[in-house]
């Protein structure tokens, strides 16, 4: 196998496995995720409970599987929000330049200078906790990086002859931006989206860990991590499972992003 492609393949394999788990969980989990069983609290991994049980005797594997739905959903929607608005803002800023560009970019700078998790915390505490607000907060957080990347591509490409050519031919600005330039600057944006997915998963875990993200009894990996922390001496496997899963998913998307970048740059 080509050495350059190895990142890509690790990423694809990791994500595929987790995606498969998520799809299976839509139809089947070994135990109902919210079923409490007081007789089976803090069970270590066994044939009955592959990853043990938690403080309410719920099956950890089932909850992990269900939690992957949250992770993917949050990642997907947040990245969509971030990339759509980020690309739009970046495109306008880079293409038109001038005072509009200055104003937009200073706002983006300010957003970037501000710790993103704090921004999300603020948003959630103002508009209330819950899945929807968590997603919106994470989405908004990721707008600046998309805007930056898109802008730099547009600034570079708007001076190129093919754009001048389109202008002379009377093609509208909107069409030049999104049909002529965007396809040419898409690859760094795709890489950013992949990395952004990883960040979104982490941010969701962090917010849920702090109790401001996904609310119980819905399973979320971050929340499981925070709940398990109290019992880490009693049942370490409870903490290990969500931790490992978060790591794998984040790693998977980072590898995927790196892999895509390697291929695009190699061409």
């Amino acid at each position: 196998m080509n050495k350059r492609r190895i990142n890509l393949w690790i990423g694809i394999v990791l994500i595929s496995i987790l995606l498969l788990m998520m799809i299976v969980s839509l139809f089947y989990t070994p135990f109902p995720v919210t079923e409490i069983n007081r007789l089976e609290r803090f069970e270590p991994p066994s044939m009955r409970h592959l990853l043990g049980t938690d403080n309410f005797g719920r099956d950890v594997l089932s909850r992990i599987m269900k939690g992957s739905q949250t992770a993917f959903f949050v990642g997907l929607v947040a990245v969509s929000i971030g990339s759509v608005f980020g690309v739009l803002i970046g495109a306008i800023s880079g293409y038109f330049g001038g005072i509009v560009d200055e104003i937009i970019m200073r706002i983006v700078d300010a957003m970037m200078a501000f710790p993103s998790i704090l921004l999300a915390l603020m948003f959630v505490s103002v508009f209330g906790v819950g899945l929807r607000n968590t997603i919106i907060a994470i989405g908004i957080m990721s707008i600046p990086s998309f805007a930056r990347i898109t802008r730099s591509g547009f600034v570079q490409h708007k001076e190129l002859d093919y754009v001048k050519n389109a202008k002379i031919k009377g093609v509208s600005n909107l069409r030049i931006m999104f049909r002529h330039i965007l396809p040419n600057v898409l690859s760094p944006i795709v890489v950013a989206a992949s990395m952004g997915f990883a960040n979104a998963v982490l941010a969701e875990a962090a917010l849920s860990y702090l109790g401001l993200g996904i609310q119980p009894p819905n399973p979320s990996w971050g929340r499981m991590l925070s709940e398990s922390q109290v019992f880490i001496t009693v049942s370490p496997w409870y903490a290990i499972a969500p931790g490992v899963l978060i790591t794998l998913l984040v790693l998977g998307f980072n590898f995927l992003g790196d892999g895509i970048r390697d291929i695009r740059e190699n061409r």
Partner: peptide, 12 residues
């Protein structure tokens, strides 16, 4: 245009 490879959109 002078530079043809630059004046034709590479993705079209």
């Amino acid at each position: 245009f002078q530079d043809t490879s630059g004046s034709l959109n590479p993705r079209g």
